[in-house]
Design a binder for these strands. Structure first.
Lengths: 259, 259
DNA sequence: GGACGTCACTTGTCCTTACGAGTTATGACT
DNA sequence: AGTCATAACTCGTAAGGACAAGTGACGTCC
């Protein structure tokens, strides 16, 4: 039994001891930590205390626990998939998404009609309760197995001005961009990035491990008059994916966007 | 006492019941949930079961628990701060960061010398154990109180070619960009975004609430020959900040970056 | 009336006990 | 030798009890 003398509650002292051992490299990645019974004996505490300490380390994403097997040090290598958030055009004017080739559709896309919420209305610079086409996709990267949820929202107002959209709005983004360009728009995009913890249904559909945040992107396609035309949302687990952007210097001082 | 009939463990059934009540809006944001004792009576379960359910909801970021007061529904409004990841130049060629004016230094920057790790070496396209200047800042947005950790890493190799950097490498990024431009570089930037759960020290320095991921940016400044010159890292809590990018279509098909 | 102490409420920590459920190695049986 | 049952490990769930610590309101005392 090892004595511990640290600030805070007992389980935090145990958690801190294990954490430091992990961060110091005393346990190799993917290696097995001592079992709960061993930790009880090692630190002279009860099982709830040990489990509380382990729960803290799980919430930090330091370890994975597998029922019947034990606790394993999580390997924190870099994400397997880098999602390039860029838009390219070929010589003949078609749009090419840098990652367009890696994503497969894991399910049939589901198309529906809905209305703006407060959040989506703000992004599209519309009021609430405006009519929208919606299309949800579940994407899978066949190479790494990374899954992502993709949603496209197109205001009726926009689709009405673009016949090819009104007929069949559930296209892949690159095709939508091309249709908009054919309708006379010169496009640019703004994108906001957030992260949050998944709800249970997001956890299951994205097959996320413990303590894994979701990267949540909202991309807005702007037309010639800079008005928002389309909103795309992408949700992907932050354990296996990272985002990549390219930035070049603006000539003008930044203007104020979004009040 | 209310009967529950759902899949899974008891505490998950309790958690699901509370979660649905919250998501259905039966509890207003910032309102007080029933106390543990009340939930025990309501669902006819023991205190550990109730606490387990509450722990699950905490991990999802749905509620905040305050010692001695109770559990409160977390208001999930949009982040208070939008960090524009852009670089602008004024008419006279100086660099202006869109958010340069909002950040204050919460502490004196600390400068040091270090060496590349596997991760930083890869980003800077250097080997391991290459010598670097480092500078850590703790930033605060005086408007929203948002805190962020900023790190600048400059290879000796780069600083030697730019006298003004070698003398005093711990400048603000805009100043560093200007110095590099004066040395003849035409700059562009690449940026990768990740999210992960904070370690305890990050949690305290960034003053993060429960179940709050960190947005972790790595920006690389590229010079005229596209070689990486500088690595900047920014860490900010995802509860109060979001990132904003602008994208325009490339003329060329995307080339492959990063092996 | 104001200040302060107490009390009732909240969640936090820690222990004990018991059993269920997944995994794996061991060994007996065919 | 191969197969399968069992046993011995792992973590998961659930209950009960006890006390500590933070909060706020109420009531008493000065």
């Amino acid at each position: 039994m090892t004595e511990i003398q640290r600030p805070g509650a007992l389980y935090q002292q145990v958690a801190a001891a294990i954490r430091e051992a992990i961060l110091a490299g005393e346990f190799a990645p993917d290696s097995l930590l001592p079992s709960e019974a061993q930790l009880m004996a090692r630190y002279g505490v009860s099982r709830p205390t040990v489990r509380n300490a382990i729960a803290a380390l799980r919430a930090e994403g330091l370890i994975d626990v597998r029922h019947g097997k034990g606790s394993f040090v999580r390997a924190d290598g870099q994400p397997a998939l880098t999602i390039e958030r860029r838009v390219s055009r070929t010589a003949d004017g078609r749009f090419v998404m840098p990652n367009g080739d890696v994503w497969d559709e894991a399910e049939e896309p589901s198309t529906y009609r809905t209305r703006t919420t407060k959040a989506t209305g703000r992004l599209l610079e519309l009021g609430e309760e405006e009519a929208l086409f919606g299309c949800d996709r579940l994407l899978v990267d066949s190479g790494t197995g990374t899954r992502a949820m993709h949603r496209t929202l197109i205001p009726f107002e926009v689709a009405e001005g673009v016949p090819l959209l009104a007929e069949e709005p559930c296209k892949r983004p690159a095709a939508i961009y091309w249709v908009l360009t054919q309708a006379g728009h010169k496009l640019w995009w703004s994108e906001t990035v957030r992260a949050h913890m998944p709800l249970p249904d997001e956890r299951t559909t994205l097959q996320l491990p413990d303590a894994t945040p979701i990267l949540h992107l909202a991309r807005i396609t702007h037309g010639t008059d800079d008005r928002p035309l389309i909103l795309e949302e992408l949700r992907v687990g932050a354990d296996r994916a990272e985002l990549a952007y390219r930035i070049t210097a603006d000539k003008q001082p930044a203007r104020r966007a979004r009040t």
